[in-house]
Amino acid sequence: MSMAKEFSKGIIKDQPVLRLLLGLCPALGVTGTATNGFGMGMAATFVLLCASIVISLLRSVIPKSVRVPCFIVIIATFVTIVDMTMNAFLPELHDALGIFIPLIVVNCLILGRAEAFFSRNPLHTSIADALGMGAGFALALTILGAIREILGAGTIFGVVITPEAFEPFGVFATPPGAFIGLGFMLAGMNYISKKLKLD
């Protein structure tokens, strides 16, 4: 498979959030605004990328029976680095994402890719896969964040875009809005899958 194909499968065909249903906790928890969704997507992409490099390079060194603890330590290390760096340089985003930053560790997306892909493939395809999955994850979170922000507050990335007469649906800013918004997005993805004949 070519690198481009490895990359692009993460965006539609194996879309992590909408088709594989991975990483739903942050997808619901931080998508109150498009900015937060995008920030979480970038943080997870960074961890995916670093983990793909290290795990792919060490794949012949790590014995099979201890691979899961090794992956967990490697992933947790990069997550903590992201956590501390964000706290230092992007404090507002760090506050908004809160507990979901350390919880990137248990994002099934990352451990799943480590186990199924990075530990079995050479460096360049692993990187392409990590970037594709990260981009797909970030895309899904940004779209959900944008939908909830537009409907819930009438803004996108913090910029007011709706006419003054628009009364925001407060419910989209609250937890129920996250579930319902994601439900509609999943249905939309089912429609796209059907049109593109992915199944």
Binding site: P176, F184, L186, N190, Y191
Partner: peptide
Amino acid sequence: LYHGAAVAMIVAGIVS
């Protein structure tokens, strides 16, 4: 289109 996870999410929203 709503079969499976999609409708489960919406139901979860209502319970929420």
